[in-house]
Amino acid sequence: MSAVLKHRLFWPVAALLVLLLSNLIFTPGFFNIEVRQSHLYGSLVDILRLSAPLLLVALGMTLVIATGGIDLSVGSVMAVSGALACLYIVHQPDQGAPGTIIVACLLGIAIALVLGLWNGFLVSVIGLQPIIATLILMVAGRGLAQLITEGQIITVNSPGYRFLSAGYWLTFPFAVILAAVVVALTVVLTRRTALGMLVESVGGNPRASRLAGVSSRTLIWGVYVFTGLCAGIAGLMATANVSSADGNNTGYLIELNAILAVVIGGTSLAGGRFSIAGTVVGALLIQTLDTTIYTTGIPAQTTQLFKAIVVIAICLIQSPAFRAKLRRRPAAPVAPAPAAPSKAEVSL
């Protein structure tokens, strides 16, 4: 039992379960899942389906944070990718044609990759602080997205595109399958190759990693590109869900929710060890919170209040200074061993 309690995913999973159970109070049939016309329906399925874009973004964010970085531009990248895809679709004679949709998706993903390359370039080659480097695209990307949509909301009339978010395949929502596939691929990519370990080593101790011959520049660059890719797919999903692209609102504030999901999942903002399972739990927890608040009739926007509390609680739990103060022990002095260089120090 104590092993279960000590597992780093215990608290997030427990919180998720409590939250799910509390829904029973407001929605008696909350856990009901039924199959209609060989499609899965139910509140739980909805939560899974709606959490797909956040999950994808959080997945990329996990790797970026593991290297000790952060990517604030994911929301803007989503908006750009979704906008470009929708723009292409509305200009085609047959908006529903499979070819159209495939090209649109490829376009969206391609632009997201380019933006990821840009972020990675600024961080790994120019050496800008990740917060600043991605802040640039966070601001400019919104403008870019609106430039693509010309400030309008592009509405597409394409069942095929909508399929990305609302469609069903083999009785499961396609978005869930897609997210699951990307998660699985990421797990394989990081844990079946040496990528995961090298990323953790770069985030855990950049100096030691360099001296052990790890090519951190390429790794860090690649991680930002991967995050761009994830955000791109998420952008397609988010715009498909509403069949329209809105440069202003697609992916709005998702960077913060994604960071939150990663932190809830037990990946430290200082970099190092990351947990993809934790991020999945974190993203589900956030989506469940949103859904729960929605069903209880509390104004949906107040979820932010709960998120604030969660952020503070988790950061305090992670903070060594806080734990030290809880134990009422004087902070200094520690053994006189030479301290490892602070990881937070990234020169501008």
Binding site: R192, T193, A194, L195, M197, L198, E200, S201, G204, N205, R207, A208, S209, L211, A212, G213, V214, S215, L219, G272, R273, A337, P338, A339, A340, P341
Partner: peptide, 29 residues
């Protein structure tokens, strides 16, 4: 501490790090 260990990684990962780094991430040991 500063130039050698990646403290939160395991003994195995720390031992394998340099060999793995020289092979590149695509060729895991």
């Amino acid at each position: 501490r500063a130039d050698g260990l990646v403290e939160e990684l395991s003994v195995r990962e720390n031992i394998i790090l340099a060999l793995q780094a020289s092979r590149g991430w695509t060729r895991p040991v």
